[in-house]
Design a protein around this nucleic acid. Structure first.
Lengths: 316, 316
DNA sequence: TTGTAGGCGTTATCAC
DNA sequence: GTGATAACGCCTACAA
């Protein structure tokens, strides 16, 4: 194993100079820096994470809490996880996955938390290491999320532009900021066009929306577009409409939300508001590492613009 | 921070005794062990992973390689990941996710690799740390997988028992052991019942199987069951059959494979061969940690029996 | 700007 | 069966 010392010898400098080249390069002359760099390359030096962690009183581990029920949102999180992992990798941080089952707060340099609900903030407040929340919140925590409001705004504007007369929103029946924001984008856009909002809320399951369409089929005139708060629910809407032999997209349009996986497996292909989840995960990781670096200084909020993907379930 | 030394002082023993209580308890008298345990509890001692790693020349990190294209199998891996994570957590190992994008071999105590294809074994052979493969292979590597053959055997036997006359297998067009095993379970069972196997292979996508049903609709007499190599493909079969107004499950039956997520979002609910992916992940992690502990000693293969889930797409 | 000494928390080794 | 000592590789604090 090649150590700092080996590199130092090779470059004819002290260990500290090598250490500085890595951590505080501005304190070292360019000349020595070059010497050290070539020595590192020659020896293929890899810093020892454990030693670094020990000396810094760090763990080089970030805990990722998924507080939500995995089943309901599973495909989404895979991308998130990959994003986070690639953000952490760059600085040699490793990941520890935490769910309600293996709950353990200790032994990490910071936390990324997703699926946090109102009641969770009590214990989150007591955490002693830096925290970044994945998902909108209005309690002043640093966070990363899609710009939910913009997402439904884009979707609603599109539906109006394509002349769907009636535009209905199917939301998730939770009292959480992300849902409020999605509804707000829809409501504001309708108001702007002097149309009346029509919102129904239910659980985030395809069978619930399918049943809903079945039950309320009579209410929806031809030429209706459904703006739906998740792809999973949109899936059920498609099935419900197809069961009535409705003509998609000519008479009925559907736009989901997420764009992570389920939009790939419907027929016709689902139009959706695509979140760049992987990028968002990476951003969350970077935000947390920066926060750790800055001794917990606030990082603010980061809203990532989503992308409207128009496919088979909407008029083009 | 509470250290070994603090515990030692509290228990009136040396640091080494405390260390031994943790790592080699058999070398310590019960009397002292009790003293140390209560001291640890009183002080809420948490071992410092970094220090341990440094002293042992370890990293306490396991790398998990996903070589497969994530998009196609996404929901599956989430469970796997959680299983692995919970297996590692117990021994204070952290996880590092590696894909083709952030490929990096260094800095870990071992590897779990999934999605490995024939050509990958060249570099896998050169890895210097213990490896466990997730997924069947016939090159002598230690692995964990579902008992694929048993899975399709169960499915095929069930279809026969329920008197579907014609039983067709839709497989994935890859030359990999897991696929061979799934086909073998089907073929052997048909042979046993003196029926003729009928196998079609295509890409692991719902639209391919949907198109396939459309194109070959005429060939399939009423009273046919489809044994399908993935839930994703089974989804397309359902859609294809529904497009022909086929009667499921009375005239046509479908059994998928995986049981991880997609089986939840179809209508009727998909019958499937359910893999306990999360448990499998945990087993892989445990196998790897044991292997590390035993200096790389071979661990053999572990085939986990799957479970046949009969739901709406098959006669009950 | 660069180098030296000491310590981070743990464990292996070798005495007793 | 138990304890003292010296590592492990790196970084902070201080000295030059």
């Amino acid at each position: 194993m090649v150590t700092l010392g080996d590199v130092a010898k090779q470059a004819n400098v002290s260990k500290m100079t090598v250490s500085r080249v890595i951590n505080h390069p501005e304190q070292v002359t360019d000349e020595l820096k070059q010497l050290v760099f070539t020595a590192m390359r020659q020896l293929d030096y890899r810093p020892n994470v454990a030693a670094k962690a020990l000396a810094n009183n760090r763990t080089q581990v970030i805990k990722f809490f998924i507080l939500e029920d995995i089943d309901t949102v599973e495909p989404y999180y895979m991308n998130l996880l990959f994003g986070i992992a690639s953000g952490l990798d760059k600085k040699q941080y490793a990941l520890q996955l935490v769910t309600k089952n293996n709950f353990d707060l200790g032994g990490s340099d910071g936390y990324i938390i997703t699926g946090a609900r109102y009641e969770d903030y009590e214990w989150i407040d007591r955490l002693e290491k830096p925290v970044v929340i994945f998902g909108e919140n209005r309690n002043g925590y640093d966070f990363v999320d899609t710009d939910n409001k913009q997402g439904t705004t884009l979707a609603t504007e599109y539906a109006i532009a394509k002349n769907y007369q009636s535009i209905v929103f199917l939301g998730i029946d939770v009292k959480e900021p992300f849902e409020y924001s999605r509804e707000a984008g829809y409501i504001n856009t309708l108001q702007k066009h002097q149309k009346l909002p029509q919102i129904y809320r239910m659980g985030n399951h395809s069978h619930e929306t399918e049943q809903f369409i079945r039950d309320h089929w009579r209410q929806f005139a031809t030429n209706t577009a459904f703006i739906v708060a998740s792809d999973r629910m949109a899936l059920g809407v498609i099935r419900g409409l197809q069961a009535q032999n409705a003509n998609i997209p000519t008479d009925f349009g559907i736009i989901g939300f997420d764009g992570v996986f389920l939009d790939q497996v419907t027929n016709p292909k689902l139009s959706t508001v695509r979140q760049p989840v992987q990028d968002m995960g990476q951003l969350a990781a970077e935000m947390l590492l920066r926060k750790i670096d800055q001794n917990g200084a606030p990082q603010g909020e980061k809203l990532i613009p989503p992308e409207l993907m128009i496919r088979g379930t909407m008029r083009q």
